[in-house]
Computed example of a mutant assay.
Amino acid sequence: MSTNIENEIKNLLNKFRSETIPPEDFKKLKSGINQLSDSDLKNSFEEEWEIFDDYKPLPQDKIQALYQKLDKKAHISPIIKVKKYWLQIAASILLIMACGLTALYYIQNKDMKELAEQNIVINSGEYGNSLVTLPDGSLVHLNAKSSLTYRQDFGHKDRKVSLSGEGYFEVKKNTEKHFIVATDVMDITVTGTKFNVYAYENKDFVEMALVEGSVNVTTKGSTHKTLSVKPNQKVTYNKLTGQLSLEETSNKVETAWLTKELSFRHEKMKDVFRCLERKFGVVFEISNQNILQDAYTGTFNDENIESILRILKMHYGFEYSINEEIITIE
């Protein structure tokens, strides 16, 4: 494009922008713009773009009067072509903004996803038990030396927790989203119910005892087995043999750790010792197995295992020794 044509178009554009352009010059501007290539047109409008913010549109009657004097069939009007160029610039700006917003959304979405995938881990203490309220309103009582793990977005897509140790679950009913308790050897699936899970990693068995509702227990590994469990039944999985068993239970032994008071009515001593093991996280080694068949009636409301052992010692006349978590009865 020659310098003369470029200067002439700039002058005509100045007149157009100041609303002083006569019909004859408007025709020249129209003809000159339609002769330009896209690249030349871009160069011509670079300066106009910066100063055109102050442009005030012509009154509609004036625009109509100007159009009536133009040959509308000849070429596209300069207003339309100018607007087309501005729309291209605007589209480019919008594209940059859209890309920026897309990148921002991607980063924020990635951060939110990473945050949602982070786990919340709740550990109970060495003694006693802890109460956990999950985001869906379900309650979990954790026994000593236990941990419960669930994702930050628990309840959004599913309701799944992982348990190590022992926990008593009071699950909020939701038929659309099952509640899953995962242990190292089996998964327990429910909609709303109450049950106890015993799943210490250092023990040779995992146990689920159902108090209310119904659950399905599915083992992991190469051989999947599923059992449907009813209230007052418990499932026991032997880690050493891989055997899965279902049996009736009163749930007394399985849930005794939840209360401060341990009450026994003609219970065999083997069940008394089992309750104490569950409640205090200890292991009994008993040299005289005959004592296990004796019946015991009594109530313990002491949280101290040694106080309970002293009472049993007076009743049965045995001796005991404690080495960390192992209690030997002789």
Rank of each mutant, 00 (worst) to 15 (best):
E176W: 02
L312P: 01
R274L: 14
T175W: 01
S162Q: 15
S138C: 06
V140W: 02
K42R: 10
L36E: 07
D136P: 04
N14D: 10
F52P: 07
T133V: 14
D53P: 02
N196K: 07
I63D: 07
L29P: 03
I107H: 11
I308F: 03
H178Q: 06
L134N: 00
K81L: 15
D187K: 00
G32R: 13
E207P: 09
D294F: 12
Q243N: 10
P59Q: 06
T102F: 14
N43R: 09
P135C: 09
A182R: 12
V171K: 05
G165D: 05
G128K: 14
E114T: 13
F179N: 00
K203H: 08
A295R: 12
T189I: 07
K220C: 12
N123H: 15
K15W: 04
I120R: 09
L292K: 04
L262P: 05
G242W: 08
T193W: 02
D271P: 03
T3C: 04
I180E: 03
I51Y: 12
S138Q: 00
E24F: 15
N129Y: 08
K252S: 10
D53E: 14
S287G: 01
I96Q: 01
Y150N: 10
Y105E: 05
L13F: 08
V217E: 02
L139P: 04
I21A: 06
K56S: 10
E285M: 14
E261A: 08
Y296E: 04
K110Y: 11
T255E: 10
E170H: 13
H141Q: 13
P22D: 15
M186G: 07
L227S: 01
Y168E: 00
M97K: 08
D61R: 09
S31F: 12
E261F: 00
M186H: 00
M1C: 06
F26Y: 13
A182Q: 13
S138V: 07
L29H: 05
L246D: 07
K84I: 08
Q68F: 11
C99L: 12
V206E: 07
D187G: 03
I9Q: 01
I93L: 08
Y316P: 11
I305C: 06
E303A: 05
N109P: 01
L87K: 15
F52H: 08
I93A: 09
K268T: 05
I308W: 02
F26V: 09
G32C: 04
N290C: 03
W257D: 00
Q88N: 11
E306T: 13
K62H: 09
K260S: 11
K313S: 05
I107R: 07
K177L: 15
Q35L: 12
V283M: 11
E8N: 09
L139F: 10
L41D: 00
K260I: 10
K56C: 05
P22E: 10
Y150H: 12
E166H: 04
E201G: 06
L13S: 00
V217C: 05
N290Y: 04
Q64N: 14
